[in-house]
Write a protein that binds this DNA or RNA. Structure first.
Lengths: 195, 195
DNA sequence: GAGTTCACTCTACAGCGGTTGACCTTTGCT
DNA sequence: AGCAAAGGTCAACCGCTGTAGAGTGAACTC
């Protein structure tokens, strides 16, 4: 493809096509999941030959690994006091998915995390356990580990309902509404079990 | 297959092999998702020729439709007072997934609900919206619809973390521990927002 | 300005997987 | 017994998809 821009250095060309391929791949993986996206479709969308995709990323697995990613969680998740955790976690979720590139990468990971072994491992060990650890560190009292795990599960359920399944009331809600409804819920997890 | 039982009527034979195929299919779909399970594998596991599967269920989609299902929710979900909803919902979830056949059918549906169009539709429109409606009917106050939707999202997140992704602290917890940790959380959603 | 390198394309292979139609074999009816 | 029907098998087709290898033309080097 390479629009009619002139005088592109070789490396510049390479970077552009590589970026184009990656963008198409992210979109395809985020939309259709790993199994349903074909190298050919990605290549066509990027205006490129299928074989070129292989040359750049080695294999479909390699392309997926480069496309599906979970950006670092915000520092606020790690440093927040228990009382501030709910807000920090929701902010982290919202900003992560609204980011244009990172959002699709995150969606691509989630989309396949129930059916693709590597995506499942990343989701379980990296995303969920990191989340859990961050929350658990701030918790006290009994069931701290389980409460942290449930915290992570809730965030995952919300993300999937809002961005992947697109369940009506959740995917249409504004950020404010979500804060209003979800934060009290998370607070019930984070606060030491009253009584 | 057809173990060495004697004198089976034709219809009886048919029922048995059909049941064997369905059991294998449920297991395969629940374990690997729609795209990764092959008719051939299902047939082999059931000790049957692949073509027979087609004859019984018409197509892979038909087999999936027969395998992935979401049993009716317990009446308690529909008749519970708001204060009892959390317990009813958790009981519904736990008993649904521990049921030997229904559990795999439910897992099969969830496993593919992010990547298979029909499964996604069923999950969104039937499961989530029914759940939401049941909860919403019991709620009052502002954001009732959204709170009901978030309620459904939380249940989905828990199910996936526990039965599909198998995230450590959540999948190892006993029913009692889950009740102890999750119910207060749901109560925060169900109770009218205490200003 | 000639040769090399590198991005890129074309063509083809090989395997898999859903699906089909012809065939066999046992059951049930008369 | 004999015929029809239904459960079940076998072999094959056909399209798709990941992947590999040879080739091409433009960009860089000297």
């Amino acid at each position: 493809m390479t629009t009619e821009g002139e005088h592109l250095t070789r490396e510049e060309r390479r970077r552009r096509t590589e970026a184009a391929i990656l963008a198409s791949a992210r979109h395809a993986f985020a939309t259709s999941g790993f199994e349903r996206t074909t190298i050919r479709a990605v290549a066509a969308d990027a205006g490129v030959d299928p074989a070129l995709v292989m040359q750049h990323y080695g294999s479909k697995e390699g392309l997926f690994a480069a496309s599906a990613a979970w950006a670092e969680q915000h520092e606020s998740m790690l440093t927040a006091a228990p009382a501030d955790l709910p807000r920090a976690a929701l902010d982290d979720l919202l900003s992560r998915f609204e980011d244009p590139a990172g959002g699709e990468a995150a969606i691509a990971l989630m989309r396949s995390c129930l059916t693709h072994p590597v995506a499942a491992r990343v989701m379980r060990d990296d995303v969920m356990c990191d989340r859990k650890a961050a929350v658990e560190a701030a918790l006290e009292g009994p069931d701290a580990a389980l409460r942290a795990g449930v915290f992570a599960a809730v965030m995952m359920g919300l993300s999937m309902a809002r961005y992947l399944l697109e369940v009506p009331p959740v995917c249409d809600a504004t950020a404010e509404e979500l804060h209003r409804v979800v934060e009290p819920l998370l607070r019930a997890l984070v606060e030491p079990p009253t009584a």
